[in-house]
Computed example of a mutant assay.
Amino acid sequence: MDLYYFIGLYQHSAKLILIENKISCGCLFLRANLVDSFYVAQDQTDITQAYQERNLLIMSLSSIQIIAADPAGNKTIFVLTPVSREFYQPIASYLLSLKEHNAEQIAFVLPDEPGLHGRMEMCGLEFCGNASRTFALIQAKKLGFSGQHTLRVRVSGCEDPLDVEVNVETNYTKIRMPVPLSITSWNNDVLVDLGGILHLVTMDKAPNPAAFETLKEQLIQEYDPPALGVMFFQPENRSLTPVVYVADVRTTYFEGSCASGTVAVIAALTHACPSGDYSYTIQQPQGELTASIKKGKNHIDSVFIEGPVAAEEPITIQLPLQLACTGRI
């Protein structure tokens, strides 16, 4: 019996494993997902080399490139380095803990797709309008665009690609948002289903964690959505406090602003209105967003959200070594 050391990479991920096992010569069994590369060592010299290979691989996989952005106060970190979905949650948890960025959410940029200007997923695979319009601006700059352009991007929580108007000089963006799938009354409030996220619009109620938790538990029990928000809206001064929960990562944030929540608010405000064009500027804790809606008879033709975006230059950060090796912090 010989002692073999295997050092392998999971396909398309940054997870390293070390297997130490006694096996018979000529009877070699490798797990199916060890397909990218592996190293076999049969003596002490090779074992030393194997550990050196392992350490180099760990170091190369422990750094990622990110962009920190601020779309109307809804601070978002975009991970530019390709990452397997199994690493979304631990990487997001680490990035959200970085006080210098003070981010509310994490987005992951995906490889390009023909016919589109880019693809992006949120950590919990939910839909986020602010992240989507910011991503379009990031892509426009990456592609070397100047002035005004319309980009088509594919994002999580949406079945079809979205069109985003961007001005590279002014960092202003306008996104065509998904039309609500349904607008219904729910316990004297208004429930707006956007597919990738479910929003409850409640009027003239003070925003507080206890009220949100009560409503959240009721909505989860009844609908179990991938993400949900409670939009505490004050009609008198058109101010909104958005609170959003994402199930996959179990995060709750009183957000600086919320684009999809703003769509839910304008949908609720105009639900009983006749056909026509309506526009509202909604003040939010860290900024303001303008929403416009075009209504036909008994249906919504289109909804747009627009506002400024601030995005920093890409930077490279080091992940904790334990996260790079195990996928856990």
Rank of each mutant, 00 (worst) to 15 (best):
M122Q: 03
A267H: 03
N55M: 13
Q65P: 04
E159D: 11
P320G: 05
T251C: 05
E313P: 00
K294C: 08
C273W: 13
C158G: 03
I315K: 09
Y39K: 05
F212S: 02
T150W: 06
G276E: 11
A310C: 06
A14G: 11
G73L: 10
S60I: 03
D301L: 11
N237K: 11
S260N: 07
S257P: 00
L18G: 04
E100Q: 14
C158H: 02
E159T: 00
P161C: 05
V35T: 12
G287S: 11
A267W: 06
I329D: 15
L215D: 06
V164G: 00
V168G: 01
L80W: 10
G144Q: 08
Q221I: 11
P320S: 06
I317F: 04
R238L: 15
G256K: 01
Y280R: 12
M231Y: 03
G261H: 03
L80K: 10
S93N: 13
G157T: 06
P209Y: 10
D224Y: 08
N187D: 15
L321Y: 01
P235G: 14
Q44Y: 10
C325S: 06
N208T: 04
T251D: 08
A14V: 03
V79R: 01
E53R: 13
A50T: 09
N102Y: 02
L194P: 03
A72W: 08
K216W: 11
Q234D: 15
V309T: 01
E306L: 09
F78P: 01
L215W: 07
P314T: 04
I67F: 09
R133N: 02
I58A: 12
C325T: 05
P225S: 08
V190Q: 07
I67Q: 04
D248R: 14
G307V: 08
V243H: 02
G276F: 10
N74V: 08
S185Q: 15
P308E: 13
S239K: 07
K205W: 08
V244K: 02
E313V: 08
M177W: 01
S275P: 00
P226F: 07
N171E: 15
P71N: 10
R119A: 05
M1K: 13
G307H: 06
R152G: 00
K142A: 14
V35K: 13
P82E: 10
F6A: 10
E20D: 12
S24N: 12
F145K: 10
V303C: 11
Q283G: 06
K216M: 15
G147L: 14
A268H: 03
G124S: 15
P274K: 05
I293C: 07
E288A: 12
L61S: 09
S84T: 01
A41V: 10
H199Y: 14
L200S: 11
I17N: 08
S239G: 10
L34C: 08
Q283H: 10
G144C: 07
T150R: 04
S97L: 08
R31K: 05
R152W: 00
L191H: 02
M231S: 03
S279M: 14
S146P: 00
K99T: 08
N208G: 05
E126D: 12
H12V: 00
V166S: 05
Q286E: 15
N130Y: 04
E121G: 00
F254Q: 12
N33S: 09
L34M: 14
V230T: 01
A247F: 04
Q52W: 07
T251N: 09
R54K: 13
M203R: 09
I64L: 12
H12W: 04
Y94H: 09
Y10A: 14
Y4W: 09
